[in-house]
Amino acid sequence: MNIFRFAGDMTHLISILVLLLKIYATKSCSGISLKTQELYALVFLTRYLDLFTDFISVYNTIMKLVFIASSLAIVWCMRMHRVVRRSYDKEIDTFRHYFLILASFLLAVLVHEKFTFQEIFWAFSIYLEALAILPQLVLLQRSGNVDNLTGQYVFFLGAYRAFYILNWIYRYFTEQHFSRWIACLSGIVQTALYADFFYYYFISWKNNAKLQLPA
């Protein structure tokens, strides 16, 4: 494992901790898209089917379990928690995420590395992860104001993607055979979706002002 991959995993972990902190400390999930969180839960559940079949390392196994458990916990909180669910911006979180699931599944059936159950679900999870942030970005755009922790949550998620691209570049030059093009292309699409958000995030950071997205 190289430093970029590790930094990517850590920023991913931090983003989840920031989100859990926001929900726990403020007992509110305003500004957070339940649709995006449900998509992430589905992404982890379908990608980590290999928990039952392959062992890579203790690190990988623990991280996989953490990602599955935390994404399910967040969805549970936003749907079931007596106090938290009241702050959910239901009226503006209207992105039709079922279409993203359907499109990702069709693409996975058509484009995969091998026609097996695991490989198709792996490809599905990669495509779905690339698109899963869309409901969140649309929600932020609609609400205009972004509170600090929500802004940092999305920032760390984007940073995680950026580090993964550096990781692939590094692996491309250091490993003899590297052909993970499904993951790489989807990863580039996914990171590009954050470009607009990053632009406004850095402007607000530079001006030391509250993050605001244009309508």
Binding site: R5, D9, H12, D50, T53, D54, F55, I56, N60, M63, K64, F67, E113, K114, Q118, E119, W122, Y164, N167, H177, F178, S179, R180, A183
Partner: peptide, 10 residues
Amino acid sequence: EPSFYPKDEL
């Protein structure tokens, strides 16, 4: 060489 299972990234 294609990267079938196992996948080593998260």
